[in-house]
């Protein structure tokens, strides 16, 4: 969790700076700073700049400064609002289900049992699988010619030639299931790491006080995991918001744009339509939404903590 927490400066006595070393840390960080400035900070600035232009690489003649027109178009773009609504639905469902399943999985594999390390390797493994690969794997399962539906039809469930990706509701849940397969290990890994830092004395004390299994979970385990849960859900929400690979290849935003997230809309604008100006305006709005969401989430979870103590 060191990654997630504000990190302490090294204590003074651990530093014992020697003369002529004043510039050493800057020199060590310089390559990183240059890369981040050129390839992260400058691009962020240029997105804001491009969002004020009509900018299409394939139609250079009509390009030019148009002020806030992209933003005006965005506000009256039905697909923008639909994609925003779908993004919210996608993030809430994915993060909620991943958290519950990931916590359950972490609790199970934190127990001592025969074959634990093998079980860990196996259940964690989808975490390393790429979005496009997840699509490849689940497409084989969902496709009417290769998937489970024909085997189900063989034994009388459903009919031949059905694919969950054709209908918009079942396409949503099909995408959710595929992303769960890959996303649950993230929570399981982070929460398992945090579970292992709980002192056994706490459980012993709770047991002496007569707490049952469920009570120990609610009064010892869950409060300890609180910070890890807040930060991992936030990171995951941002990540799922930005997740494009899987939906781009599995549903492509379809059927009928019903699974189009905002970043997917941006990616389509950039990769397919080459509408860089309008895509940049969408990007700026997505940045703002993410920033507001993150700040509000951290504020709210802190308020909750003060209320508890």
């Amino acid at each position: 969790m060191a990654v997630l927490q504000a990190d302490p400066a090294p204590p003074v006595e651990a530093v014992r700076r020697r003369p002529r070393e004043r510039w050493t840390p800057y020199a060590l960080l310089a390559p990183t700073l240059v890369l981040v400035a050129v390839f992260l900070l400058y691009p962020i600035g240029s997105v804001v700049y491009y969002s004020l232009f009509k900018y299409n690489v394939t139609k250079p003649r009509s390009n030019g400064f148009i002020g806030l027109e992209n933003y005006q178009n965005m506000l009256s773009d039905q697909l923008f609002w639909d994609s925003l609504r779908f993004t919210t639905q996608w993030v809430v469902v994915e993060v909620g289900l991943q958290l519950v399943l990931g916590l359950g999985l972490a609790l199970v594999i934190n127990e001592t049992f025969v074959g634990r390390s093998l079980a860990r390797s196996l259940v964690f493994s989808p975490w390393a699988v790429a979005g496009v690969l997840t699509t490849t794997i689940w497409l084989l399962i969902y496709s009417p010619t290769t998937g489970f539906s024909r085997y189900l039809a063989d034994i009388g469930i459903g009919s031949y030639g059905e694919s969950p990706l054709i209908d918009s509701t079942s396409a949503f849940w099909a995408a959710v299931l595929a992303e769960l397969w890959r996303g649950v290990p993230f929570f399981a890994i982070l929460l398992l790491a945090d579970l292992q830092t709980i002192s056994q004395d706490l459980y012993e004390a709770a047991e002496v006080d007569g707490a049952g299994r469920m009570q120990r979970f609610w009064s010892v385990t869950l409060p300890h995991l609180r910070n890890a849960i807040v930060l991992s859900t936030l990171l995951r929400a941002v990540w799922e918001f930005n997740n494009v690979d899987l939906l781009y290849t599995l549903t492509g935003g379809g059927p009928g744009n019903s699974t189009m997230t905002l970043p997917l809309y941006v990616a389509r604008m950039a990769v397919d339509a080459k509408e860089f100006g309008y895509g940049s305006a969408l990007t700026v709005s997505a940045f703002l939404i993410l920033a507001i969401f993150s700040i509000a989430y951290l504020k709210l979870s802190r308020v909750g903590r003060e209320g508890q103590s």
Binding site: D7, L40, P43, V47, L264, A270, S280, F287
Partner: peptide, 22 residues
């Protein structure tokens, strides 16, 4: 440190356009 943590919130899809230009 703050800047580094903030970069975690930058979506890759959104950097496609400016990075392409660079």
């Amino acid at each position: 440190m703050v800047m580094t943590l903030c970069t975690q919130f930058i979506p890759g899809a959104m950097m496609l356009i400016p990075l392409f230009d660079i």
